[in-house]
């Protein structure tokens, strides 16, 4: 077992982890429910979290490597996720929602980009996020509208 200390949503956690333990399992231990498993092969994007503001699949990120890092889950961007949800609602982009927390985090990461965000940037940010409900077009539109109103476009 390895002792590590890292931050999750600005809260410090010191705990023992197994050498092969992935972040998705650690977060479940920390009672974070929003990070859910979709595929087992790092292919679907459902379990995306941010590590130092970069999106990563938590099922492919070893916890033992996160000493001193800042992990953000959607609980850490609560109001922002709520604002994004409004735009998804108006576009009909939210259905089952299983992919949505991960998408909200990737949008948050995208907002760190200094240059104006284009539709191509949004599509690139959504690349790893599979959604079987929406057909994507409405998601891209909703995110574009949200970023526009949030002055990132």
């Amino acid at each position: 077992m390895i002792n590590i200390t890292f931050m999750v949503n600005h809260r410090k956690h010191s705990l023992e982890v197994k050498p092969g333990e992935y972040l998705i399992e650690t977060l479940k231990r920390l009672n974070i429910h929003s990070v859910r498993r979709g595929c087992d092969t790092a292919s679907c994007g459902v379990c995306t979290v941010l590590v130092d503001l970069k999106p990563v699949p938590s099922c492919a990120t070893l916890t033992a490597r996160l000493a001193g890092k800042n992990v953000t889950t959607v609980e850490g961007i609560h109001d922002e996720a709520g604002a994004l949800a409004d735009y998804f609602g108006l576009e009909g982009a939210d259905q089952c929602g299983f992919c949505n927390p991960g998408i909200a985090l990737s949008v948050h990461a995208l907002k760190q980009q200094s240059s104006p965000i284009t539709e191509a940037d949004i599509k690139q940010a959504l690349t790893g996020h599979l959604c079987r409900c929406s057909g994507y077009v409405s998601q891209v539109k909703a995110i574009m509208a949200y970023l526009k109103d949030d002055a990132h476009v």
Partner: peptide, 21 residues
């Protein structure tokens, strides 16, 4: 008319909702 999904915001914010939660 258009109405946002009644559960859309809670889901986006990661609230407990699905079976495994």
């Amino acid at each position: 008319q258009v109405r946002p999904s009644v559960d859309g915001k809670g889901i986006m914010q990661g609230r407990k909702g699905y079976t495994h939660d």
